[in-house]
Design a binder for these strands. Structure first.
Lengths: 194, 194
DNA sequence: ACCAACGTACACCGATCGGTTTCCTCCTGT
DNA sequence: ACAGGAGGAAACCGATCGGTGTACGTTGGT
């Protein structure tokens, strides 16, 4: 293989290490893990962290912001997907059903973070709200493309199923077994999305 | 001996004050509020708290356990309700739609607690799981009574909608405007529950 | 009237919290 | 070769964490 291995091992910058570690730790252990533990996991000194970010809350918000695109790529169909709307919407729920079977799955990180923070004005809550709106927007676009009678409502309902499926996994502690996909299918059928 | 019939409605016992304050504070501020704040709010000394409970975690679990019946009474139709299954199920979602409009609403307390704790073996997580199963059992009973084709799946789907509606309220920060009821209606229709 | 149990007030413990500061090492541009 | 900045290690800060120990009221049963 002629894969290009960078001459310089190019260790990620402290900022990247910090945000990646933060995304993982905040998701796994909650937003109340300490700054010390976070910096230790990231291999970054507290001093550097506080030069890069104004506070732990900003780190949290930035880590959510950074992990957003990857999370979407994990769930949404590729941008050049040419399948009909129904298949593209169901793609998301099939992914969710798969994800929920992973031992690491703790529900949607945006929902978890917003739930833990309580404060809707917290910068991380704002980020979380934004990504949820993007998910709803995707559903809305597909619903509209399919000529659904009420694409706005359908999109919101699909988002509710998405978040509810995540919550169920957290509380019950076992995978969804296709329940998310099955529920989304019912909504799509009822809305006449083929 | 200690518990005689309360002829005079005396001040609640420290245990009751503690559990009531705990339910409110844990719900509003999350499971990470301090023992000092909790005891101060309850008007109970830390000493008494640690004589009544082994740890803060036990207080949390006990407060969830205590608030469970009241929460169910808030959502479920009365036990002697004679309406058809569909109406009884929709009753829950109408209540949820109403609740979500209240300024204090922070989502389902059981889901919130389980989400914050992460640990599924935490005593409070066990309590939360139990109450969610009771809600699902109610849906299941109604679905079976209505002769739904797959009452088990329908009950789980309704629970997902319930929790998803709560999550949406938390993340988006505005009421559901009938969205929970509307979504449940779609599921009931599809399952042939009249 | 007395005593024991109950409950409060409060000091105290080690650990950890978010955040700041100091010091020193290492890497890089010139 | 050398200056200077970036960044890590760790001490340090006051506050708070969960939890305990002690001492002082208050109350009810006999």
């Amino acid at each position: 293989m002629t894969t290009s291995a960078p001459r310089t091992p190019a260790r990620p910058t402290p900022r990247e290490r910090l945000l990646d570690a933060a995304a993982g730790l905040f998701y796994r252990d909650g937003v109340n893990i300490g700054v010390d533990a976070l910096c230790k996991a990231a291999g970054v000194s507290k001093r550097s962290m506080y030069q890069l970010f104004g506070s732990k809350d900003e780190v949290l918000a930035a880590s959510l912001e950074r992990s957003g695109p990857g999370y979407q790529a994990l769930l949404l169909p590729p941008a050049d997907d040419s399948r009909p709307p129904r298949a593209q919407v169901l793609h998301v729920f099939e992914r969710l059903d798969q994800l929920s079977a992973g031992p690491e799955y703790q529900g949607c990180p945006f929902v978890s973070t917003a739930t833990e923070l309580k404060d809707p004005d917290h910068p991380a809550s704002v980020v979380a709200r934004g990504f949820k709106q993007q998910l709803t927007a995707f559903f809305h676009a597909q619903a509209a493309r399919a000529g659904a009678s009420d694409p706005e409502t359908l999109a919101r309902q699909l988002t509710i199923v998405f978040d509810g499926a995540g919550a169920r996994t957290v509380v019950q502690g076992h995978p969804l077994d296709g329940l998310a996909t099955a529920t989304a299918t019912v909504l799509l059928d009822a809305a006449g999305v083929v």
